[in-house]
Nucleic acid binder design. Structure first.
Lengths: 192, 192
DNA sequence: TGTACATCAGTGAACGCGCGTTCACTGATGTAC
DNA sequence: TGTACATCAGTGAACGCGCGTTCACTGATGTAC
């Protein structure tokens, strides 16, 4: 059956959104296309009307997650005028973000996965993350644009590492201890 | 055929060592047991004389990698008396470590994977990493033991995050830029 | 000392399952005439 | 205005492959007697 004009675009976006969550939550190999499509009340055959293959969707999912994440960050910044960066750090290293892997930062959840992919996927990741970081860099200390972007990269990757360490550890107290130690450290290092 | 007394133990260790590299290089799902065994000139059937299942081997591989990594770190520290921590940071964030994923830090390569595993695997990881970090904590600033261990956790997870970011990015210049910015930052932050 | 039997690391065929991808088909709507 | 045909998002069976795991078997060495 034929569908209205924007129908295809809408379906595509629904797939990307769901995929972006599943990839973060389960890793690339943990996501099955038939499952994903079924969750959207579609069948797996239609998938290839929208994407070349699974890797293509992976790239889209990362981009989507980075855009979503940057939006959330900017919202937090707007809600905390004068202490934007502190609020961003506290949010990134919060107990909620620790637990909500699928809705959380794709860098923490997927950077190691991405690193195993060929150049093309990594190029796409690089472009997406640099675009997402640009507006946030304004809140980071540094004399030049370049300095601010580098500082944001350090801060961001460092927080992603701390979040991953906390997620990988079993004991709940230790998880929270890692998060709170990292919060203190990064706030002291970047917010003055 | 029957083998000499320590033969089984030696085979087991060969498997764990090879697995620990492959897991880091390809991720857990990227490793096939038949491949792994064949690389050691064995067949896949014998695997289950040594391990309960693949997840069991994964736990062993991580532990092995952490021990190996800690040894390497201590060696670097011994070779750089007076500037131990600086040498450790420079080594961790070196262009060699960027490229040698399979021989490198298991936290960078596998933390996100570990985070997706059940409690039992994460408990094993936690115990192994805490044991590996204890002797290295001596080189980290801090008034108390606990403070030093927390500082090491921040430093270590932060560097792992930076390494992963550099690995996930495509452009070679950008990769090196991330590494060198992180080196400068962590040296300034922790090597007074 | 020699013989019969037990042991068990390793072998390789087989099983079963999940999953990425392909493909012939459907059928409602758009287009050509 | 009506009719014939084209389009194409979505369907679901089928294919093929990889891979974790099981299992009956092998055969050299150790042990019991």
């Amino acid at each position: 059956m034929r569908y209205p004009a924007e129908h295809k675009q809408e379906t595509r976006e629904r797939i990307v959104r769901a995929a972006s969550r599943q990839f973060r939550g389960r890793g690339e190999e943990g996501v099955a296309i038939a499952d994903l499509m079924q969750q959207l009340h579609l069948t797996h055959g239609g998938f290839y009307r929208h994407f070349k293959n699974k890797e293509d969707l992976f790239g889209e999912g990362i981009t989507q997650a980075l855009e979503e994440g940057a939006e959330g960050m900017l919202r937090v910044a707007r809600n905390n005028p004068g202490s934007e960066l502190k609020a961003l750090i506290e949010r990134y290293l919060s107990p909620e973000h620790l637990v909500r892997v699928a809705e959380g930062c794709p860098v923490a959840a997927l950077a190691a996965d991405i690193a195993r992919h060929p150049q093309a996927v990594r190029m796409r990741f690089q472009r997406a993350i640099e675009k997402s970081m640009r507006p946030i860099a304004a809140f980071v200390p540094g004399a030049t644009d370049k300095e601010r972007r580098n500082n944001l990269t350090i801060l961001f990757s460092g927080m992603a590492g701390a979040l991953n360490m906390a997620r990988a550890v079993a004991d709940e107290d230790r998880r929270q201890e890692i998060l709170s130690a990292a919060r203190d450290f990064y706030i002291r290092a970047f917010c003055t």
